[in-house]
């Protein structure tokens, strides 16, 4: 079991959604939903602490893999998170992604926290900082309007450059 206390929050995104905690939980944990808002990724998750977690790309390759750290529907989901599509990223220490869902008046507050267990450079955080607002804006649109966003995105240049530097060091 991982030591959650070692992880320090580096990127936090909060959004308020006109929905219910259960619908937001379902959207985060069901492949039919994640394929709509998570850049086409489908989630595969064992519904228990210690279970496996995978985000799969539309072409079948594994994008992210990890382990379930918290599974408390419909309030709290936490998974370790290792990016698998890139050799350098696969070797990095896993990060911890936590979703917290709470009723806030008539709406529901969703808080995503990306936490790291090492002194990760800002250049490597750029991918998440660029991607999370798209993913969570699209999730909100799916739940409120039935339609996702269609934002195309490439990994940020500074992140690719930082990964190249890691490759040379290795």
């Amino acid at each position: 079991m991982i030591d959650v206390a070692k992880f320090k929050p580096k990127t936090v995104y909060v959004t308020y959604i006109a929905s219910t905690p259960q619908k937001i939980w379902d959207a985060l944990t069901q492949a039919a939903f994640t394929s709509q808002f998570f850049f086409g990724r489908t989630i595969e998750i064992e519904p228990k602490v210690g279970g496996s977690f995978v985000l799969r790309m539309p072409d079948g390759r594994v994008d992210v893999k990890g382990e379930v750290v918290a599974f408390d529907p419909p309030q709290r989901l936490a998974v370790t998170w290792t990016v698998d599509w890139n050799e350098q990223m696969r070797e990095l220490p896993a990060c911890l992604v936590t979703y917290e869902i709470a009723q806030a008046g008539e709406a529901v507050r969703l808080t995503m926290t990306e936490a790291h267990q090492w002194d990760v450079p800002d250049d490597l955080l750029a991918g998440g900082r660029m991607g999370w607002p798209v993913i969570l804006s699209s999730l909100k649109s799916v739940l409120e309007t039935g339609k996702p966003l269609s934002v195309k995105m490439e990994p940020p240049k500074e992140m690719i450059a930082a990964l190249e530097r890691l490759k040379k060091k290795a």
Partner: peptide, 24 residues
């Protein structure tokens, strides 16, 4: 800001804004 901007997005996409719980 996360509440104001979430509510702005809702208003423009659905026609309905949201009232922050702390105002209630």
């Amino acid at each position: 800001w996360p509440h104001v901007l979430s509510s702005l997005k809702s208003l423009l996409e659905t026609g309905h804004g949201m009232v922050a719980p702390w105002y209630k």
